[in-house]
Structure formats: C-alpha cells, structure tokens
C-alpha cells in the first residue's frame, strides 16, 4: 500500500515515516499545493492530512476538496492537533473517512485504517 502524508511539521513527518514504513510505502509532503501534484501523479491508497498547514493559502480541507473534486479513490484521514468532538464532526462532515487526533498512536491508527478498508471493500 502507498501512503501520502501531508504535514508541515518536519518532526511529525519524520516520526510518521519511521513508524509507518513497516506497514506501507510512505511519501511525505509539507505543502498542500505540492501534495495536489503528488496526488495527480500517483495512486495513493491512503492520504493522511494535517488540517493546519503552514501555507497561508491552503489548509488540510483544501487538499481534501481537491481529492473530492477529482474523485481520487484513496482513503482520507485527518491527522490533527484539533482534538475536540466539534473538530471530529467537522472533519467527517467535510468528507474525511477517518479522523486521528494528535498525538497519533501509529499502530492503532494503522489498525483503524485496515478496519475501514475492510468495511469499504
């Protein structure tokens, strides 16, 4: 499986890379617009998106909009430090398949993704 992780924080990208590479191939990108290019050029199975990206012109919802508008079939998950129920509801309303509050337990996250993938198949 191939994963894209869109996250502006370098340490978070490194932690995710090191932790998830035992499960799947992972590509990381800090910029939302560059992430769109990667999505266009690759077939990702899972796209993990931080909501609060540093670029003042795009946030995680913007990347999600691109995915939805282009009917990209990947599983999408919000990975965010905004951890209230309101944010979870908002993410699901906007169309994320999954929501993971930070700090993320990678093994649990992977289990959740596999569970969702099975129910979706």
């Amino acid at each position: 499986m191939k994963i894209l992780y869109v996250e502006d924080n370098q340490i978070n990208r490194l932690v995710m890379e090191r932790s998830i590479q035992k499960y799947a191939e992972i590509v990381t990108e800090e910029n939302g617009f560059k992430a769109m290019d990667l999505i266009k050029e690759n077939d990702f199975d899972i796209i993990l998106i931080d909501l609060n990206l540093a670029d003042p012109e795009i946030d995680g919802f913007g990347v999600l909009d691109y995915i939805k508008e282009n009917n990209v079939p990947a599983i999408t998950a919000a990975v965010t430090a905004f951890t209230t129920d309101e944010w979870k509801d908002k993410c699901m309303e906007e169309g994320f398949h999954l929501y993971f509050p930070k700090p993320v337990d990678i093994d649990n996250m992977w289990s959740e993704i596999l569970k969702f993938k099975r129910t979706r198949a």
């Binding site: 502006d8 924080n9 939302g32 617009f33 909501l51 609060n52 540093a54 003042p56 012109e57 795009i58 946030d59 919802f61 913007g62 990347v63 909009d65 691109y66 430090a81 905004f82 209230t84 309101e86 908002k90």
Partner: peptide
C-alpha cells in the same frame, strides 16, 4: 488560488495558542 476555510474561526483557547505560536514552534 486560496483554498483555506474554517480554520481560525471558533477556535478554543488551546487551539488559538497553537495557531498563534506555530512559527515559534517550528
């Protein structure tokens, strides 16, 4: 092209702190 929505509105105190200090953290 600006594709940014909904962040920055109705944030609680902790979220506002996080947003306001993002660059400092980096």
């Amino acid at each position: 092209m600006i594709i940014k929505k909904n962040l920055g509105e109705d944030l609680n105190v902790a979220e506002q702190l996080k947003l306001a200090t993002k660059e400092d953290h980096k």
